[in-house]
Protein backbone atom coordinates (compact mmCIF):
# COMPACT_ATOMS: atom_id res chain seq x y z
CA UNK A 1 0.00 0.00 0.00
CA UNK A 2 2.92 2.30 -0.75
CA UNK A 3 0.64 4.80 -2.46
CA UNK A 4 -0.89 5.52 0.93
CA UNK A 5 2.49 6.22 2.53
CA UNK A 6 2.50 10.02 2.83
CA UNK A 7 6.31 10.09 3.05
CA UNK A 8 6.60 8.81 -0.49
CA UNK A 9 4.97 12.02 -1.70
CA UNK A 10 8.06 13.90 -0.60
CA UNK A 11 9.96 12.13 -3.37
CA UNK A 12 13.22 11.93 -1.43
CA UNK A 13 13.55 8.15 -1.72
CA UNK A 14 13.61 8.38 -5.50
CA UNK A 15 16.60 10.67 -5.02
CA UNK A 16 18.37 8.10 -2.90
CA UNK A 17 17.76 9.97 0.34
CA UNK A 18 16.60 8.25 3.51
CA UNK A 19 14.15 9.71 6.01
CA UNK A 20 17.15 10.43 8.24
CA UNK A 21 18.85 12.27 5.40
CA UNK A 22 15.98 14.68 4.85
CA UNK A 23 15.63 15.32 8.55
CA UNK A 24 19.37 15.99 8.68
CA UNK A 25 19.02 18.44 5.76
CA UNK A 26 16.28 20.18 7.68
CA UNK A 27 18.52 20.24 10.75
CA UNK A 28 21.33 21.87 8.75
CA UNK A 29 18.92 24.52 7.48
CA UNK A 30 17.72 25.22 10.99
CA UNK A 31 21.26 25.37 12.32
CA UNK A 32 22.37 27.79 9.61
CA UNK A 33 19.34 30.00 10.30
CA UNK A 34 19.95 29.89 14.02
CA UNK A 35 23.61 30.88 13.58
CA UNK A 36 22.54 33.67 11.26
CA UNK A 37 19.88 34.98 13.65
CA UNK A 38 22.26 34.77 16.58
CA UNK A 39 24.83 36.84 14.73
CA UNK A 40 22.22 39.53 14.04
CA UNK A 41 21.49 39.59 17.77
CA UNK A 42 25.20 39.85 18.52
CA UNK A 43 25.48 42.63 15.96
CA UNK A 44 22.59 44.52 17.57
CA UNK A 45 24.22 43.95 20.96
CA UNK A 46 27.43 45.53 19.71
CA UNK A 47 29.49 42.34 19.82
CA UNK A 48 29.92 42.11 16.05
CA UNK A 49 30.26 45.25 13.92
CA UNK A 50 28.86 43.81 10.72
CA UNK A 51 26.94 40.83 9.43
CA UNK A 52 25.98 39.69 5.97
CA UNK A 53 23.19 37.21 5.99
CA UNK A 54 22.20 34.01 4.23
CA UNK A 55 18.60 34.01 5.41
CA UNK A 56 16.33 32.73 2.66
CA UNK A 57 19.19 30.90 0.92
CA UNK A 58 19.37 27.92 3.28
CA UNK A 59 17.40 25.42 1.20
CA UNK A 60 19.45 26.18 -1.92
CA UNK A 61 22.73 25.97 -0.02
CA UNK A 62 22.00 22.79 1.90
CA UNK A 63 20.43 21.16 -1.15
CA UNK A 64 23.25 21.96 -3.57
CA UNK A 65 26.00 21.15 -1.07
CA UNK A 66 24.46 17.85 0.06
CA UNK A 67 25.88 15.70 -2.79
CA UNK A 68 29.40 17.04 -2.24
CA UNK A 69 31.81 14.63 -0.57
CA UNK A 70 33.46 16.11 2.49
CA UNK A 71 37.26 16.07 2.50
CA UNK A 72 37.33 14.95 -1.13
CA UNK A 73 35.44 17.60 -3.06
CA UNK A 74 36.15 21.32 -2.79
CA UNK A 75 34.03 24.40 -2.30
CA UNK A 76 34.65 28.04 -3.24
CA UNK A 77 31.79 29.81 -1.44
CA UNK A 78 30.78 33.46 -1.09
CA UNK A 79 29.78 35.75 1.68
CA UNK A 80 26.24 34.41 2.10
CA UNK A 81 27.35 30.77 2.24
CA UNK A 82 26.71 30.09 5.93
CA UNK A 83 24.54 27.02 5.27
CA UNK A 84 26.90 25.76 2.55
CA UNK A 85 29.90 26.05 4.85
CA UNK A 86 28.07 24.31 7.67
CA UNK A 87 26.92 21.52 5.36
CA UNK A 88 30.49 21.09 4.14
CA UNK A 89 31.94 20.73 7.61
CA UNK A 90 32.42 24.07 9.32
CA UNK A 91 30.78 24.24 12.73
CA UNK A 92 28.49 26.88 14.19
CA UNK A 93 31.36 27.75 16.47
CA UNK A 94 33.71 28.21 13.51
CA UNK A 95 31.27 30.66 11.93
CA UNK A 96 30.66 32.64 15.12
CA UNK A 97 34.37 32.67 15.94
CA UNK A 98 35.09 34.12 12.51
CA UNK A 99 32.55 36.87 13.12
CA UNK A 100 34.16 37.69 16.43
CA UNK A 101 37.56 37.77 14.64
CA UNK A 102 39.24 35.69 17.31
CA UNK A 103 42.93 34.85 17.15
CA UNK A 104 42.40 31.17 16.47
CA UNK A 105 39.50 31.65 14.06
CA UNK A 106 39.97 28.94 11.43
CA UNK A 107 39.00 31.25 8.55
CA UNK A 108 41.55 33.99 9.02
CA UNK A 109 42.75 34.29 12.60
CA UNK A 110 40.78 37.51 12.94
CA UNK A 111 42.27 39.09 9.83
CA UNK A 112 39.16 39.17 7.68
CA UNK A 113 35.88 40.95 8.28
CA UNK A 114 32.69 38.98 9.02
CA UNK A 115 31.28 36.86 6.21
CA UNK A 116 34.68 35.83 4.84
CA UNK A 117 34.73 32.12 5.58
CA UNK A 118 37.26 29.52 4.66
CA UNK A 119 38.78 26.39 6.11
CA UNK A 120 41.64 24.57 4.45
CA UNK A 121 40.96 21.53 6.62
CA UNK A 122 37.43 21.33 5.16
CA UNK A 123 38.48 22.04 1.54
CA UNK A 124 36.71 25.39 1.72
CA UNK A 125 38.46 28.23 -0.11
CA UNK A 126 38.97 31.46 1.82
CA UNK A 127 36.39 34.08 0.77
CA UNK A 128 37.51 37.57 -0.26
CA UNK A 129 35.46 40.67 -1.02
CA UNK A 130 35.79 41.35 -4.77
CA UNK A 131 32.83 39.36 -6.04
CA UNK A 132 33.23 36.52 -8.51
CA UNK A 133 36.94 35.87 -8.05
CA UNK A 134 36.12 32.56 -6.33
CA UNK A 135 34.54 31.15 -9.47
CA UNK A 136 37.95 31.03 -11.13
CA UNK A 137 39.38 29.30 -8.07
CA UNK A 138 36.77 26.55 -8.32
CA UNK A 139 37.60 26.20 -12.00
CA UNK A 140 41.30 26.00 -11.12
CA UNK A 141 40.66 23.38 -8.45
CA UNK A 142 38.70 21.36 -11.01
CA UNK A 143 41.52 21.88 -13.51
CA UNK A 144 44.00 20.55 -10.94
CA UNK A 145 41.96 17.40 -10.42
CA UNK A 146 41.56 16.98 -14.18
CA UNK A 147 45.31 17.33 -14.74
CA UNK A 148 46.03 14.76 -12.06
CA UNK A 149 43.17 12.46 -13.04
CA UNK A 150 41.61 12.65 -9.58
CA UNK A 151 37.99 12.03 -8.67
CA UNK A 152 37.12 15.45 -7.29
CA UNK A 153 34.27 17.84 -7.99
CA UNK A 154 34.43 21.55 -7.15
CA UNK A 155 31.39 23.64 -6.35
CA UNK A 156 31.21 27.42 -6.25
CA UNK A 157 28.41 29.81 -5.44
CA UNK A 158 27.69 33.46 -6.14
CA UNK A 159 24.79 35.84 -6.49
CA UNK A 160 23.11 36.97 -9.67
CA UNK A 161 24.70 40.40 -9.25
CA UNK A 162 28.12 38.75 -9.37
CA UNK A 163 27.10 36.76 -12.42
CA UNK A 164 27.75 39.93 -14.42
CA UNK A 165 31.48 40.02 -13.66
CA UNK A 166 33.79 39.24 -16.55
CA UNK A 167 35.62 36.63 -14.50
CA UNK A 168 32.44 34.52 -14.41
CA UNK A 169 32.44 34.42 -18.18
CA UNK A 170 36.14 33.55 -18.36
CA UNK A 171 35.76 30.75 -15.83
CA UNK A 172 32.62 29.21 -17.28
CA UNK A 173 33.94 29.30 -20.81
CA UNK A 174 37.18 27.56 -19.86
CA UNK A 175 35.32 24.96 -17.78
CA UNK A 176 33.09 24.31 -20.78
CA UNK A 177 36.03 23.93 -23.15
CA UNK A 178 37.68 21.22 -21.08
CA UNK A 179 34.54 19.72 -19.48
CA UNK A 180 35.97 20.35 -16.03
CA UNK A 181 34.33 18.80 -12.95
CA UNK A 182 32.79 21.95 -11.49
CA UNK A 183 29.30 23.00 -10.42
CA UNK A 184 28.36 26.67 -10.65
CA UNK A 185 25.57 27.69 -8.31
CA UNK A 186 24.01 31.10 -8.82
CA UNK A 187 21.85 31.96 -5.82
CA UNK A 188 19.54 34.43 -7.49
CA UNK A 189 17.68 36.44 -4.84
CA UNK A 190 16.71 39.13 -7.33
CA UNK A 191 18.65 41.93 -5.69
CA UNK A 192 22.25 43.10 -6.01
CA UNK A 193 22.15 45.28 -2.88
CA UNK A 194 19.54 47.73 -4.25
CA UNK A 195 19.44 46.88 -7.94
CA UNK A 196 16.74 44.46 -9.05
CA UNK A 197 17.23 41.57 -11.47
CA UNK A 198 15.70 43.36 -14.44
CA UNK A 199 18.39 46.02 -14.17
CA UNK A 200 21.18 43.46 -13.87
CA UNK A 201 20.64 40.54 -16.17
CA UNK A 202 19.75 40.95 -19.83
CA UNK A 203 17.37 38.14 -20.68
CA UNK A 204 16.59 37.77 -16.97
CA UNK A 205 18.09 34.29 -16.81
CA UNK A 206 21.56 33.42 -15.62
CA UNK A 207 21.03 29.72 -16.35
CA UNK A 208 20.37 30.46 -20.01
CA UNK A 209 23.95 31.62 -20.44
CA UNK A 210 25.21 28.06 -19.92
CA UNK A 211 24.09 27.07 -23.39
CA UNK A 212 26.70 29.35 -24.87
CA UNK A 213 29.39 27.64 -22.82
CA UNK A 214 28.33 24.20 -23.95
CA UNK A 215 26.92 22.80 -20.72
CA UNK A 216 23.49 22.62 -19.12
CA UNK A 217 21.97 25.50 -17.20
CA UNK A 218 19.14 24.61 -14.86
CA UNK A 219 16.76 26.90 -13.03
CA UNK A 220 15.45 25.49 -9.80
CA UNK A 221 13.22 26.59 -6.96
CA UNK A 222 15.81 27.56 -4.39
CA UNK A 223 13.21 27.35 -1.64
CA UNK A 224 12.94 23.59 -2.08
CA UNK A 225 15.97 21.75 -0.74
CA UNK A 226 15.05 18.48 -2.41
CA UNK A 227 14.67 20.10 -5.82
CA UNK A 228 18.08 21.72 -5.31
CA UNK A 229 19.55 18.43 -4.19
CA UNK A 230 18.15 16.68 -7.26
CA UNK A 231 19.81 19.07 -9.71
CA UNK A 232 23.05 19.22 -7.74
CA UNK A 233 23.21 15.44 -7.53
CA UNK A 234 22.76 15.19 -11.28
CA UNK A 235 25.44 17.88 -11.72
CA UNK A 236 27.80 16.02 -9.42
CA UNK A 237 27.29 12.75 -11.29
CA UNK A 238 27.78 14.53 -14.59
CA UNK A 239 31.04 16.06 -13.35
CA UNK A 240 32.27 12.71 -12.06
CA UNK A 241 31.51 11.06 -15.39
CA UNK A 242 33.76 13.60 -17.09
CA UNK A 243 30.86 15.23 -18.90
CA UNK A 244 31.66 18.65 -17.51
CA UNK A 245 30.10 21.53 -15.62
CA UNK A 246 26.53 22.45 -14.79
CA UNK A 247 25.21 25.90 -14.00
CA UNK A 248 22.42 25.84 -11.41
CA UNK A 249 20.40 28.99 -10.94
CA UNK A 250 18.53 28.66 -7.67
CA UNK A 251 15.78 31.23 -7.32
CA UNK A 252 15.83 32.29 -3.69
CA UNK A 253 14.62 35.15 -1.52
CA UNK A 254 16.75 37.56 0.41
CA UNK A 255 14.86 37.79 3.68
CA UNK A 256 17.13 40.42 5.20
CA UNK A 257 18.73 43.59 3.98
CA UNK A 258 21.94 43.12 1.99
CA UNK A 259 23.92 43.46 5.20
CA UNK A 260 23.64 45.01 8.65
CA UNK A 261 24.74 48.31 7.06
CA UNK A 262 21.85 48.31 4.60
CA UNK A 263 18.11 48.98 4.97
CA UNK A 264 16.15 47.38 2.17
CA UNK A 265 12.99 49.32 3.03
CA UNK A 266 14.64 52.24 1.27
CA UNK A 267 14.48 50.58 -2.13
CA UNK A 268 12.04 47.67 -1.85
CA UNK A 269 8.28 47.92 -1.69
CA UNK A 270 7.27 47.32 1.97
CA UNK A 271 4.49 45.01 0.83
CA UNK A 272 7.02 42.95 -1.08
CA UNK A 273 9.33 42.75 1.92
CA UNK A 274 6.39 41.62 4.04
CA UNK A 275 5.41 39.04 1.47
CA UNK A 276 8.92 37.55 1.45
CA UNK A 277 8.19 35.65 4.62
CA UNK A 278 5.74 33.49 2.72
CA UNK A 279 8.71 32.22 0.71
CA UNK A 280 10.86 31.40 3.70
CA UNK A 281 12.30 27.95 2.90
CA UNK A 282 12.32 26.80 6.51
CA UNK A 283 8.55 26.72 7.22
CA UNK A 284 8.10 25.45 3.67
CA UNK A 285 10.29 22.40 4.28
CA UNK A 286 9.04 21.94 7.82
CA UNK A 287 5.45 21.77 6.54
CA UNK A 288 6.41 19.30 3.85
CA UNK A 289 8.14 17.07 6.38
CA UNK A 290 5.08 17.21 8.60
CA UNK A 291 2.76 16.42 5.72
CA UNK A 292 4.99 13.48 4.90
CA UNK A 293 4.68 12.24 8.45
CA UNK A 294 8.42 12.60 9.06
CA UNK A 295 8.24 15.44 11.56
CA UNK A 296 5.95 16.10 14.51
CA UNK A 297 5.53 19.31 16.46
CA UNK A 298 7.28 17.66 19.38
CA UNK A 299 10.21 16.47 17.29
CA UNK A 300 10.53 19.89 15.67
CA UNK A 301 10.51 21.61 19.05
CA UNK A 302 13.10 19.16 20.37
CA UNK A 303 15.34 19.74 17.34
CA UNK A 304 15.10 23.50 17.68
CA UNK A 305 15.86 23.29 21.39
CA UNK A 306 18.90 21.14 20.66
CA UNK A 307 20.12 23.66 18.09
CA UNK A 308 19.57 26.54 20.48
CA UNK A 309 21.74 24.77 23.05
CA UNK A 310 24.38 24.17 20.39
CA UNK A 311 24.37 27.84 19.41
CA UNK A 312 24.54 29.00 23.02
CA UNK A 313 27.52 26.77 23.60
CA UNK A 314 29.12 27.83 20.31
CA UNK A 315 28.77 31.48 21.21
CA UNK A 316 30.11 30.95 24.71
CA UNK A 317 33.09 28.98 23.39
CA UNK A 318 33.73 31.52 20.64
CA UNK A 319 33.57 34.47 23.02
CA UNK A 320 36.01 32.76 25.35
CA UNK A 321 38.62 32.36 22.63
CA UNK A 322 41.59 34.72 22.70
CA UNK A 323 41.65 37.87 20.61
CA UNK A 324 44.42 38.07 18.03
CA UNK A 325 47.74 39.46 19.23
CA UNK A 326 48.98 42.51 17.31
CA UNK A 327 52.48 41.06 17.62
CA UNK A 328 51.41 38.40 15.09
CA UNK A 329 49.91 40.81 12.54
CA UNK A 330 53.06 40.94 10.41
CA UNK A 331 53.24 37.18 10.02
CA UNK A 332 52.37 34.94 7.09
CA UNK A 333 52.83 37.42 4.30
CA UNK A 334 55.14 34.75 2.94
CA UNK A 335 55.97 31.24 4.06
CA UNK A 336 58.15 31.23 7.15
CA UNK A 337 60.92 28.68 7.40
CA UNK A 338 59.96 25.10 8.04
CA UNK A 339 56.83 25.94 10.03
Amino acid sequence: MAELDPASALGHRELGLTDEDVLSMYGHMLLARAVDERMWLMQRAGKIPFIISGQGHEAAQVGTTWPMRRNQDWMAPYYRSIASAITFGMSAEDIITAHLAKGDDVSSGGRQMPGHYGAARNNIVSVSSPVGTQVLHAVGLAMGAWVRGDDMVAITSFGEGTSNQGEIHEGMNFAGVHKLPVIFVCENNGWAISVPLERQVGGLSVAARAEGYGFPGVTVDGGDPLACYAVARAAHQRAQRGDGPTLIEARVVRLTSHSSDDDQRRYRDPAEVEELKEHDPIPFFSNRLRAAGLLTDEADAALRAEIKTEINEAQAQAEARPDPDAATAHRWVYAEGAD
Binding site: M143, R148, M152, E167
Partner: peptide, 15 residues
Amino acid sequence: ALIAGAAMGAAMYGL
Protein backbone atom coordinates in the same frame (compact mmCIF):
# COMPACT_ATOMS: atom_id res chain seq x y z
CA ALA B 1 41.95 36.55 -15.35
CA LEU B 2 41.24 32.88 -15.89
CA ILE B 3 44.93 32.09 -16.33
CA ALA B 4 45.78 33.67 -12.98
CA GLY B 5 42.63 32.56 -11.15
CA ALA B 6 42.82 28.97 -12.35
CA ALA B 7 46.50 28.92 -11.42
CA MET B 8 45.43 29.90 -7.93
CA GLY B 9 42.80 27.18 -7.74
CA ALA B 10 45.23 24.57 -9.04
CA ALA B 11 47.88 25.71 -6.56
CA MET B 12 45.40 25.31 -3.70
CA TYR B 13 44.79 21.82 -4.99
CA GLY B 14 48.51 21.08 -4.73
CA LEU B 15 49.90 21.78 -8.18
